[in-house]
Simulated assay, not measured.
Amino acid sequence: MLTLEAFTEDDIDVLIDWVPSAEFNHLWGGSRFTFPLDAKQIVAHLQTEEVTALMLYHGNQRVGYIELFRESETTYRLCRVLIGEAAGRGMGYGKKMVELAIEHARKQFDANRVNLTVFEHNHHARRCYESLGFVIDKRTSVFHAANGEIWQALYMSKAI
């Protein structure tokens, strides 16, 4: 059974272990975090009032991380969506985690809209979001990634 629970300090080292490289860090966290990820950055980020950090559990095992960022009283942005271990990817955990986060936003915060940003070349994530009814609102012109490549970012949203 998959459940979404509040992220705690006990989860910090697990999250750090899930981010193995600068490129992965940028794909997951954008420009918010520098590599190597460390507890100081995470703790400072979680002190942001608008951030609600959640951990996905399969039974007692941590399998994913996601954030809800309050943009307004009724709109939340899904951020830093991550299925931790590579072996857990492609098993439907990401889709279920996003569904649970949307439900959390709706029930806990009375949200009626969620949005997100995904890099265009992240095809697996993009397909997951599209399968859940997210639509592309706009594209950014360019985004400079950690390794100097230019990445296109897509802004997607969904009424809930």
Rank of each mutant, 00 (worst) to 15 (best):
M1N: 06
M1L: 06
L4Q: 04
E9P: 04
D10R: 12
D11S: 09
I12F: 07
D13G: 06
D13R: 12
W18Q: 06
W18M: 05
P20K: 09
S21G: 04
E23F: 11
F24A: 15
H26Y: 15
L27V: 09
G29Q: 00
G30Y: 06
S31L: 12
R32G: 03
F35T: 12
P36I: 04
L37V: 06
D38E: 02
D38A: 00
D38H: 04
A39I: 05
I42N: 00
L46S: 01
L46R: 12
Q47R: 14
Q47Y: 10
E50H: 14
V51K: 13
V51W: 08
V51E: 08
T52F: 06
T52G: 02
T52V: 15
A53M: 11
L54R: 13
L56K: 09
L56A: 15
Y57Q: 10
Y57K: 15
G59R: 06
N60L: 11
N60T: 12
Q61T: 07
Y65P: 07
Y65T: 08
L68G: 10
L68Q: 07
F69I: 05
E71I: 05
E71S: 03
T74N: 04
Y76W: 11
C79N: 14
R80G: 02
V81H: 07
V81P: 09
V81K: 06
V81F: 09
I83K: 01
G84A: 10
G84C: 10
E85Q: 14
E85I: 10
E85R: 13
E85F: 04
A86I: 15
A86C: 10
A86D: 14
A86H: 14
A87P: 00
A87R: 14
R89Y: 09
R89G: 07
R89L: 09
G92D: 05
Y93K: 07
G94L: 03
G94A: 05
V98P: 03
V98D: 02
E99V: 02
E99G: 01
E99Q: 14
I102D: 04
I102N: 00
H104Y: 03
H104L: 00
A105W: 00
A105G: 12
A105E: 00
R106A: 09
K107R: 13
F109A: 04
F109P: 03
F109W: 12
F109N: 04
F109R: 07
R113A: 04
R113V: 04
V114P: 01
L116P: 02
V118P: 01
F119G: 01
F119P: 00
F119D: 01
H123G: 02
H124R: 15
H124N: 11
A125M: 05
R127C: 06
R127G: 03
C128L: 15
L132N: 04
G133Q: 05
F134T: 08
V135E: 08
I136M: 04
K138Q: 07
K138G: 08
S141G: 09
V142D: 09
H144V: 08
E149N: 11
I150L: 12
Q152Y: 10
A153F: 03
A153W: 02
L154S: 05
S157Y: 07
K158R: 15
